[in-house]
Amino acid sequence: MDKFTTLTGIAAPMPLVNIDTDMIIPKQFLKTIKRSGLGKNLFDEMRYTQDGAEIPDFVLNQPAYRHAEIIVAGDNFGCGSSREHAPWALLDFGIRCVISTSFADIFFNNCFKNGILPIVLPQEQVDVLMADARKGANARQTVDLEAQTVTTSDGQVFPFTVDSHRKHCLLNGLDDIGLTLEKVSAIDTFEKKAGTLRPWA
């Protein structure tokens, strides 16, 4: 997993609420057995017509946002299925940070496993960032994970909170499995104990 430290980039405004995982990556693209290559189908049905032509109005098709690295989104972003193809598609497109008032739990969790930082901020602050994002490609926002701040293109700073374990893993690009396997003796002990208490499990 790539580290996430600081990011300064173009932010795409997507104010629609309840942007679900079927919108982010429709099911026909879940048939892959790889993690890469999904970026071209990110938001596929919003982004392309049935015959594959770009829909010019869609935000990521507009010249200003084709290289966006941040999405500022409406409430409850990522609701729906557990498909990790959603963060894989965002990452493959180049998105490293999503900012919203709220996220669906599983999507939120999946982001951290892939070096994407989801940031929760109050409505008033998301509104300011949304308006800032609408200014286009010159309005770059800065996300600093170490300092836990988002800065608008005109210098307004909003602090955010993040789970300390997840922050540590993102900053250092750490793989969870390796960390957990360091506790293998605790797992062995638990299994022995549970095997006596609940042998049917």
Binding site: S82, E84, P87, N110, K113, N114, D176, I177
Partner: peptide, 10 residues
């Protein structure tokens, strides 16, 4: 509960 693929591997 549901989990993502990284968690499936975990």
């Amino acid at each position: 509960h549901g989990i993502g693929t990284s968690e499936v591997e975990h």
